[in-house]
Design a protein around this nucleic acid. Sequence first.
DNA 1: GTCTATAAATCGATAGAC
DNA 2: GTCTATCGATTTATAGAC
Lengths: 195, 195
Amino acid sequence: MARTHGSRAEITGPLVRAEARRLFARHGYAAVSMRQIAAAVGVQAGALYAYTPDKQALLHDLLDSHMQELLAAWQDDPAAPPLARLEAFVRFHIAFSLDHSDAVFLSYMELRNLTPQNHRRIADLRGRYEAALETILRDGIAAGVMRLDDPKLATMALIAMLTGVTNWYREGGRLDRRRIGDIYWGLARGAVGAD
Amino acid sequence: MARTHGSRAEITGPLVRAEARRLFARHGYAAVSMRQIAAAVGVQAGALYAYTPDKQALLHDLLDSHMQELLAAWQDDPAAPPLARLEAFVRFHIAFSLDHSDAVFLSYMELRNLTPQNHRRIADLRGRYEAALETILRDGIAAGVMRLDDPKLATMALIAMLTGVTNWYREGGRLDRRRIGDIYWGLARGAVGAD
DNA sequence: GTCTATAAATCGATAGAC
DNA sequence: GTCTATCGATTTATAGAC
């Protein structure tokens, strides 16, 4: 697979990230060697260091860009009814998680392999995303269309429930994505006490 | 920390397992060396091999005994009303997860580092536990006290939601365990469509 | 049962040629 | 930008002394 010389920086860079993400998600950050990543990309190990200063930076870069993309992709409409906003969030979170299942898996499995400084940065981004859901729940309670004892815990519970789809979903399985969204929306609507 | 000679098999064996569980949960299976485990136990690395044939067997043993303990601890009462059984499951699962948070973390984070054969065994045990909840949901639907489109998905969703407590719970935090159980039971009751 | 010592393999990262 | 080659550290696991 390794080719001899020949520069293809435009495609090698993204490929390094893609293969690292896939292998880290599959086997774990610590279990994957730079040589394995290089082999998947089709270069020798030394060539990777033209794209990342070291392995740790590669992991952090993957998690950081994933969280940035997640935050940029979610568009709330504060003027819409809270239940409609919650339904949009449920469907968005499931779709995004399934479309980026490797990165989602990494972002809550490999936090422990980040340096403390890198960990704080990623945890902060995640906190912002959780706050987006919590705002919807608080608006729903204030509007009298949701009944929740503790919106903070409900936020954590709902995100855990929705993210869980990545644990069992298989392409071409019993249910398509639209139907999965319907079912989880039914569960979420009930959980927040909507009638 | 390392002592020179002196046999204490009765306490060293359990200690090896306990320290391995703690370190694997904290840093990940692949990231923890046998030397690190030995140092935490207070022996030299070679001594560990009196208690496990290799590192892989140590991981599998931790996951297997955890799942066995989980299955043995859950006691369903098929004669009780479905909603009471679900409440019992919710409170049991949260309490057990918090009491064994390291093992719970391992059991769904390090499956990928098991050999295929070991993986099948653990996945089978997990499937039996999921089936225990699914039975309750199906009974609840049949009794007309729950409304669920898809009990299989609801099972996965509820377990993911409940297990999520281990991601944010900190001893001595804002809420005690009883209160957390109350809140999650409220969410679960709503999710299954109970009135 | 635990120690010391070590074999054999692999790791992350770098140097220098092209 | 990628290659080959390699350094130095670290890994799992084993052998043999006590």
